[in-house]
Simulated scan of single mutants.
Amino acid sequence: MSGILVIGGYGAVGAQVSTTLDGWFPGQVIAAGRNPDGARLPDTVRRARLDLADIGGLERLLDLDPITAVVLCVEPADATVAETCLSRGIHLVDVGASDHLLRQVEDLTDRATVSGATGVLSVGLAPGLTNLLARRVHDRVGGAQRIDITVLLGAGERHGADAVAWTVARLAQPAGARPRRYVMPGYGRRIAYPLDFSDQHSLRRTLGVPRVATRMCLDSAFSTTLLAGLRRLAVFRVDRRPALRHLITAALSRVHIGGDGFAVRVDAVNGDRHAALALTGNGQSRATALVAAHVTRTVLAGALPTGVHHIDQLPALAGIPEQLAAHGILRTSCRADRRRSTS
């Protein structure tokens, strides 16, 4: 096997992806990004400087080292990075969470098939684990007419600047759906607010479900209420004032009120049939990194078809929640099935 390139390999997620893969494939991992000295990595992980704005730099890096798979842990401006990899027959594991970018990569499936490459999208916690749970509850109700995804994140976990900026950008968008209350295992009944996660869009395409909505809350009820209030006041809608957007992002990056726990719950409804699955754990960034690492290992084992697929379209990846439980990431799995929906 040749090398594994982790782009964004020095960030909160990328560094953990690099470390995990290095444990399985020692000496084969290259962590790349703009700050090679910015993360603690095993000595066996090679480092490379890479700015995704410079596609020529990526091409030179791919020419210099024989790369078999690329794990993309940062969101590029467009699908050029994915196209560069897939057209060369290099497998791609994409941790991105913006639907407009994932759609662009979906369009590369024919090119990936011709080159013999596999691209896996919706890799992480949300999207990722949420997609896998959605597939399970969809099947349990015999084809859902509505899926509701609820994500509870730990407000005390330290996230990378890119992740905070992504969230601020979504908070600037119209809500699109109504808030809902759900019982989140380990946290009780919580109100969650709609947020534009990519899973609610991609699942309509992969599962054919007409109505999918994703909502988010924080483990700190105070922080959830605060963000919801600021959103109603349109504080985050500062597209024409990038300096203000930067200040808001920097401020939120420094606020850590809460713990590092997370919970995801997915409900499916089909007529009078209702099924729900929920998972809880600790360390959102580590969970995302482990999902990406397990997907990459499965890709390298040759267990996945060529072309571009979302994680919920690949039966070989259906057991990832159980694999994360073996790492001690997931604490509980709660199930509920009813003949009549009460949500």
Rank of each mutant, 00 (worst) to 15 (best):
R232N: 15
I30A: 00
V151N: 00
V264S: 04
S333R: 15
A15Y: 00
A228D: 14
D148M: 01
R88K: 10
R241T: 09
I191P: 01
V17C: 04
L314W: 02
R60M: 08
L102S: 06
P305H: 09
P242M: 10
A325Y: 04
T224A: 10
L304E: 00
A15G: 04
P179T: 00
Q145I: 04
T109S: 15
R273P: 02
D267N: 15
D107R: 14
R273Y: 07
D139W: 00
L203S: 01
T288S: 13
L108T: 00
E322G: 08
R140A: 15
Y10C: 08
R136V: 09
D139T: 11
P185M: 12
H327M: 08
L58E: 01
A316K: 08
L203T: 02
H91N: 15
V183G: 10
V71G: 04
A275K: 03
V71D: 01
M216I: 15
I191K: 09
L50M: 05
T296S: 07
D312H: 13
R158I: 13
M216Q: 12
T225W: 15
S220G: 09
Q313R: 13
T206K: 03
N282C: 10
G96M: 02
L300W: 05
C334F: 14
D110M: 14
R88H: 09
V266L: 07
A228H: 08
I4H: 02
G302R: 10
I90T: 03
T306S: 12
D54Y: 05
W166D: 12
A172N: 11
T288C: 13
L61W: 09
L233E: 02
G328C: 07
L324C: 02
P321M: 00
A303R: 11
W24F: 11
P26Y: 08
S220M: 11
V120Q: 00
L132D: 04
V235G: 06
V269A: 08
D196L: 01
Q313G: 11
A77L: 10
H201A: 13
A228R: 07
G116V: 07
T206G: 05
L129D: 05
Q28M: 14
P127R: 04
S202H: 12
A48M: 09
N131S: 15
R297M: 12
R237P: 04
T288M: 04
A134R: 00
L129K: 03
A221C: 03
D51N: 15
L102H: 01
L290P: 00
A213D: 09
S122N: 14
R88C: 01
E59N: 10
D148E: 14
I311N: 00
R331G: 05
A336K: 09
S122L: 03
T118G: 08
E106M: 08
P36L: 09
A161R: 13
G116Y: 10
V168R: 04
D199W: 03
W24R: 13
C334N: 11
G124P: 01
V123M: 03
V291W: 00
L300A: 07
L317E: 00
R190A: 07
A155P: 01
N270Q: 13
W24E: 11
R189E: 14
P66Y: 06
V6H: 03
F25V: 10
Q200S: 09
D107T: 10
P194C: 07
T130H: 03
G160V: 08
I191R: 12
T296I: 07
V114G: 09
L61P: 04
T84Q: 12
A165K: 02
R103I: 06
